[in-house]
């Protein structure tokens, strides 16, 4: 007999022809905000996980991957980050990783959905602890709106939004990249979730993002990570920068000296993450040449 008394599964369509299923112990929460339907489940394999409109946003067992990758990669490149803006990121995971860095003076978070923050505070305290850092200022505001008023203000912008088709669609557009460019200092960096390149449906979004970012920033590189619950388990990040190159300006020694404890990121992995499969390289090149 199975350890589970009943067959209770969360399913997510990754394409029309591919489906992921996670066995669920309990459905802990469900409500609909002005922006999205939010659900929280408890599962044997991934621990608690949160979904938005039926898509997994993060799980306890794997959130360290993208929170570390989206924070430590730019932080190990930029020599002196004082002001950071996080777009989305209301769960607090990104802020938690940022809080390891003493030189940071301000962590602004623009998250439109208060319900999302409240749910994370209640069910994911290990992430939400990041929001408690004294340097964090949380704004319940649309990311694009927040950015419009910012000029030459940040060293680093982290776009934590994941879904280019949902309520965060505005954060995957040319106007978003342009407004980020304007909000950054002359040596600023923006990193963002670049989606998964594998399935045809996701590939087009991935291409469009790269096309827009390449036009907006002089340095634009893509790096990768393995994230089990995302479509095909393979995920990309974008590194868009006005000055610093993610490998040439990378300072592993300085980062090692900080002694930050990680589960995914290492300085070896930093370099490796920018070495992409041929099909991804080709896809990105095609979009660069299309300009």
């Amino acid at each position: 007999m199975s350890s589970n008394p009943m067959e209770f599964w969360f399913e997510e369509m990754h394409t029309n022809n591919v489906k992921m299923a996670i066995r669920v112990n309990k459905h802990l929460y469900s409500d609909t905000s002005e922006f999205q339907r939010i659900d929280v489940f408890e599962s044997p394999e991934f621990g608690k996980f949160l979904t938005s409109n039926g898509n997994v946003i993060f799980s306890e067992q794997e959130e360290f991957t993208y929170d570390e990758m989206i924070v430590h990669v730019p932080m190990a490149v930029h020599p002196d980050v004082k002001r950071v803006l996080v777009i989305g990121g209301g769960d607090g995971g990104v802020a938690r990783e940022l809080s390891h860095y003493k030189e940071i003076e301000v962590i602004d978070i623009a998250e439109p959905d208060k319900m999302f923050v409240d749910v994370c505070r209640k069910y994911f305290p290990d992430n939400a602890i990041g929001l408690e850092d004294v340097r964090v200022r949380l704004y319940y505001e649309d990311g694009l709106r927040f950015l419009r008023k910012c000029k030459d203000k940040y060293d680093l912008i982290i776009n934590d939004a994941t879904d280019p088709t949902g309520h965060e669609a505005g954060l995957f557009t040319k106007e978003f990249y342009g407004n980020c460019f304007k909000a950054l200092h002359d040596d600023g960096i923006m990193v963002y979730q670049h989606g998964s390149p594998f399935f045809d449906e996701d590939e087009e979004n991935c291409r469009a993002m790269h096309r827009k970012a390449v036009k907006s920033f002089p340095v634009m590189k893509v790096y990768q990570a393995h994230i089990p619950t995302c479509p095909s388990g393979y995920w990309l990040f974008g590194f868009a920068s006005k000055k610093y190159h993610p490998l040439r300006d990378f300072d592993p020694k300085k980062w090692e000296e900080r002694g930050i404890k990680t589960w995914y990121y290492t300085t070896h992995l930093h370099s490796g993450a920018f070495m992409l499969p041929k099909y991804v390289e080709d896809m990105l090149k095609e979009e660069e040449n299309a300009n």
């Binding site: 649309d142 557009t173 040319k174 978003f176 342009g178 407004n179």
Partner: peptide, 15 residues
Amino acid sequence: QEIERLAGALNDIAR
């Protein structure tokens, strides 16, 4: 959200 996009885009066009 769409209004934000329009305002964001106009802002970027002006820049």
